[in-house]
Amino acid sequence: MNGVIGTEEAGRSGGQGAAGPTALQAALAAAKAQGRAALVGYLPAGFPDVESSIAVVEAMVEGGCDVIEVGLPYSDPTMDGPTIQRAADTALTAGTTPPDVLRVVEASAATGAATLVMTYWNPVERYGVDRFCADLAAAGGSGVITPDLIPDEAEEWFAATDATGLDRVFLVAPSSSDDRLGLTARASRGFVYAASLMGVTGTRAQVSGAAEKLVARTRAAAPAGLPVCVGLGISNGAQAAEVAAYADGVIVGTGFCDRVLDAPDLRTATAAVRAFAAELAEGVRLGRTG
């Protein structure tokens, strides 16, 4: 960990970003000040339906998530494994639309947790890139993670996120060249998302050995102070602790979806989600001392 979060990044953006750090930047800085990694939890909006997804997000925050990624369910999620595919499919079948996603963002931000949207690119383009950013900022969102948008294709996205002061999170992977790590990290604001392994979302028995090396390579290529958060395959407190030892944030998604899928009713689901978030929150606090 080095540098100061939220100065260079915020200074490069116009609009609201120029006024100070986003909620995301502040949350990552606060976790760092506590000497720990931040806990980032993912749930598709509208899973299992819009109102229930708000209850689940609230349980994630109560359990200890610092940052919430609200997924925008998409018909063709090529980066997701079977669990999140099923969750997104459930949300789409329930009729979830981008306005519903923004409603979940608003509810999530109202808990005080920094809130991002995670979305495939086509729904943003269809909604209108500028309009999407404006509406997300108005809903209290801090930024957007775009798993199938690379900086090479993101000119319009840079302008829209700069104009609204939103963070924009691109992904790096173990297969990324050093040049691409630098390019992608310089294009990112808020944090850069390090995919721990070559594969889709889903739980794994072990955290990939590639993750720690990727984080080190990314830090070497990134602007000083840009946080690096790690996702893919992290599904329990011990794994969260392991990753928290070298990353600025630990991202968990499938584990939350699993608990909702397994629960017979919403009450059971929120209890299980709260307990799981607490286990992970303990993990990210053990990482630096363990």
Partner: peptide, 12 residues
């Protein structure tokens, strides 16, 4: 056209 693909596939 272009490339709207995950970063993980760019090298390939």
């Amino acid at each position: 056209g272009g490339r709207f693909s995950p970063e993980a596939l760019i090298a390939a």
